[in-house]
Design a protein around this nucleic acid. Structure first.
Lengths: 345, 345
DNA sequence: CTGAAAGCGCTAACAA
DNA sequence: TTGTTAGCGCTTTCAG
């Protein structure tokens, strides 16, 4: 069953390296000097219209493509931007990646991606290594220290999404807004005592969400029971189920959707009904948050926009343009689905 | 509330471009010729041990890092490999990306990622553009034509995952195995008439799955009702619900998990019980396939291994090493969860 | 074992 | 407007 072999390696295409055509080839064909080709192709208008046309035609027939490496050498600019995420398989990053990719591509930049697999060491190391070949670096929810980030930012333009770092271009969604909505939503359903399952203690975002939630609950005269932090995963969520049940709360906030989903799974398996017995609210609105039943009510983060804006801001700094101000609409919003309802009595 | 601004742009770090240190700097400090530095750093042993040590020390104190662009120029090799996926947000690719990233990084290569947003034109265009700066290109479940792929492969080493292309290094999981398991599973539960919801007609993998399933069902004397193809999304799955119900089948296969999940959602909302009334089987075992209730029974594809092996094979070809044979274990397997059960009578 | 020199493909003064 | 001429930082013969 040849069709089912795992690998079919056929060497027919003998690597024919297609001797790459250079501006010299184009120049010869067009009967001009290489530098004129460079000018014609890069800054239209600074070359006689008819010669330019001739050059473009030559480039066309030869199927000329610039060599980005060769260009980068004299200019120092590579037209590559880097994106560092801590975990490629974490759905929270999907939209950030996509937003960043879109912004980069539309600005003529190529996106280089790397992940740190949740290790702060590896993160710094890879970011540092990447720095050599990029014009700018975007860090998504970085794990490394403020000092490390600042060190990177001293070498090349750097921007950060989902975290605030002093003296570094930071794009942070307005978490406050969504939390306020969520608290209001729960209060209007009669919840007066709610539990919070925090995420990793050293995550900037985890701390921030916890603080704002506490603040908001106090403001709304709602009692908030903060439980032990857990890993920001489905498994972490499951592990918090007992504590949640014992907390006596009628609703629970999870640091993120993964925790919320794990929590729901475990609670349901323990015979607890959602939302009849306990309401559950997550954070992020990741892919799959609506696969559960009941579907998860969650505070949606504008991840794609975050990635997009951060990249745009980064590129603005790279090209020396004015960095766009904060006229963005990066508010988080509550997405109400089936996992929340009236407080159990 | 300064803390909640969407963008905090602080220009303190005046872009201090950190005049990059070159081999000339190292050479001067070590009292040798630049070429010796190059040799010492690249091919250990071809330089006197003590001078080498002196050079390394100098490089260390100066914090020298090679300039990948400058190196790429004379050698023609960039140590960058490209990965093209059709949709970054499609969970099917997460593991492929991660596997490829791991293989590339561990071989000292940098991964450059691009997506085609499901457009075959854009896919070819971006792949072509990327080709200029990479040593090799990996195409994951590409949308473009065999001819286009072959054209790319003529210029630089190219590998393909999840699709078979003549004369191109192809890594394809053994779909057959999982399908056989699934059919056996259903038959053992008394299903004798099952429906199939196909994916996009021009997808190689979609055709392949359909064919193998048909083949296997015939072999097992099970009646297979092939419905109209739908988009490989949750929405597409929902749209197939009516046809599935009307098909009179007691079990349904979906081209992929997204379709299966949409199908389940719609069926459940129509009052159909799963698996009591209809059993549902998906494909891929994507992230979130176990979020549903009942959790989805699905044919799991070794996506991560696919990405990993394909990248390894590609890099082998790039470096001229022997391309590893097909000793891999890329078999698909059935993951039984709650969405399948005994056939309704 | 090491230095000298040429050149990768492109850009950017400086001339003409 | 176009051609000439230097490099960008590195690798790699070729001598010594």
């Amino acid at each position: 069953m040849a069709d089912d072999t795992a690998v079919d390696a056929l060497g027919e295409g003998d690597a024919t390296p297609t001797e790459s055509v250079t501006i010299y080839d184009v120049a010869k064909l067009a009967g001009v000097n290489p530098s004129t080709v460079s000018r014609a192709l890069n800054r239209p208008g600074r070359v006689n219209a008819v010669t330019e046309r001739r050059i473009r035609a030559a480039a066309e027939t030869l199927n000329y493509q610039v060599n980005p490496m060769a260009r980068a050498l004299p200019t120092g600019r590579t037209s590559i931007v880097g994106l560092v995420v801590s975990d490629i398989t974490n759905p929270v990053f999907f939209d950030v990646i996509r937003g960043a990719e879109a912004a980069a591509t539309s600005a003529g930049y190529t996106l280089v991606l790397t992940e740190s697999e949740e290790s702060d060491e590896r993160e710094y190391e890879r970011a540092q290594r990447m720095l050599r070949m990029v014009d700018g670096l975007l860090l998504a929810t970085p794990r490394m220290s403020d000092e490390q980030i600042t060190a990177l930012a001293r070498q090349k333009p750097v921007a950060v999404v989902n975290r605030l770092v002093d003296d570094v271009l930071s794009v942070v969604p307005d978490v406050q807004h969504g939390i306020a909505e969520a608290v209001r939503h729960l209060r209007s359903h009669g919840h007066s005592r709610i539990a919070y399952v925090p995420g990793p203690a050293l995550s900037w975002m985890a701390r921030r969400r916890g603080e704002l939630l506490a603040q908001r609950c106090e403001w709304a005269h709602i009692e908030l029971v903060t439980l032990e932090p857990v890993a920001p995963t489905v498994v972490g969520g499951r592990s918090a189920a007992v504590a949640v049940r014992d907390s006596g709360a009628t609703a629970v906030f999870a640091y993120n959707d993964l925790i919320a989903i794990g929590l729901m799974q475990e609670l349901v398996e323990t015979g607890i009904r959602i939302p009849a017995d306990i309401s559950v609210v997550g954070f992020d609105d990741i892919f799959g948050a609506d696969f559960t039943s009941p579907a998860l009510t969650t505070v949606k983060s504008p991840l794609r926009e975050g990635g997009d804006h951060a990249m745009a801001a980064l590129l603005a700094r790279v090209t020396g343009d004015e960095v766009p101000g904060d006229g963005f609409d990066l508010a988080t919003t509550l997405v109400v689905r089936g996992s929340t309802g009236p407080a159990a009595r």
